[in-house]
Design a protein around this nucleic acid. Sequence first.
DNA 1: AAGCCTTTGTGAACGCATGCACAAAGTCGG
DNA 2: CCGACTTTGTGCATGCGTTCACAAAGGCTT
Lengths: 234, 234
Amino acid sequence: MTRRSTLGARNRGIPEATVARLPVYLRALHTLAERGIVTVSSEELAAAAGVNSAKLRKDLSHLGSYGTRGVGYEVQYLVYQISRELGLTQDWSVAIVGLGNLGRALAGYGGFASRGFRMSALLDADPAIVGERINGLTVEHIDKLEQVIADCGISIAVLAVPASAAQPVCDRVVASGVTSILNFAPVVLTVPDGVDVRKVDLSIELQILAFHEQRKAGGPAGVEQEYLEAVDGS
Amino acid sequence: MTRRSTLGARNRGIPEATVARLPVYLRALHTLAERGIVTVSSEELAAAAGVNSAKLRKDLSHLGSYGTRGVGYEVQYLVYQISRELGLTQDWSVAIVGLGNLGRALAGYGGFASRGFRMSALLDADPAIVGERINGLTVEHIDKLEQVIADCGISIAVLAVPASAAQPVCDRVVASGVTSILNFAPVVLTVPDGVDVRKVDLSIELQILAFHEQRKAGGPAGVEQEYLEAVDGS
DNA sequence: AAGCCTTTGTGAACGCATGCACAAAGTCGG
DNA sequence: CCGACTTTGTGCATGCGTTCACAAAGGCTT
């Protein structure tokens, strides 16, 4: 073990799996705080977040030793610590590229602005959409992409463009200085080292559900024979 | 090792990580097929899917031995095998509950219908929305939820409702026989055993990006001191 | 002040996932 | 028909993530 000090493991290097759960804990804590709850045990918080309590404690231990034995965690303090670790104590400017149905839904989503994320720019290529006001912002033409990203200090971009446009648009935002991308287009994006991409894909999620659904119903129906029927009807 | 037969490992029990990647391979294969490509090596397909070739081969080996050594995989055949394994050779009826901005975007998304998923019902509680036609379907009032789910044989539901409505709506669709749920509401759903839930949460994705973004910029800015300033201005 | 009770933080064991590296197995040219 | 070449399928090692179980640590009661 490579312990750095005796005061808990403030190791730089929080496991990726832990990072992915911190936002869930944070949301649960906010809910508790709204109900006026001051202190929470790992057991209670874990239940609210839908995880095992041992996992919760280990996750939190990666941030430091912020609980009190015999008592639990102070809700407000933990909110602050997790927020800070996630980088939510500073503001992030976000651009949405592509304002079709999905892009509009994202632009109108209140959950963004609430915690550290400011919707700073909306960009689209369609002249019929450019100039429209959505949620208090005017849609700019994508020709101004580089300029807008620089002016607003945008480092995070949300891509809600058609699949065929995704890679070119991605290349442009990256060239403009964006280093984090949330991609809704159903393509595998190629980016340079140092750029993070996360992907949200409805179709994939449904297919995973279908797999398990089929499993419940008794496994894949087809036997080997079916393929030939499927392709040439013999 | 517990091999079942000499003909590859047709072990029931495909790793979850593999299942999550199969749809990605499937999409890559469809793209190749459109370009008229008949045969593909693990190296090429892995590149198209954005994964390591060894991982791809191991994933595919869980389905069976569908490649030809020295040659590669036949695209159409592999499409069929993966589709069958994922349960896409049968049709799945899907209901969307909640037709705000996000629900509309989902209802209009072409990627659903294309492969095995049929949008069968749209449900909402708002009288101003009920009766509207979206993408060829009429929005029904949520009072008819149980009836519609039974009539259409729906086993997969997409929840795009406000957070406060999510758990009650979830309980109702589950009681009606739905066993797979794709949840867009920012809450942790509680469901009985045997029901699968997958969650899509924009806010969480952004927070994960923010964490890495901050990391690139030199780690969490705040020192211990900052918390006191943040809460009571002392 | 002392002992009991609660809850954290973590060592240790286990299981899953990843990636290397190579033998087995097939194709293709001569 | 044979030998060289290509590519699959997988044994093995390594690392990450999860869970159990418990000692250490604090609060609370008497």
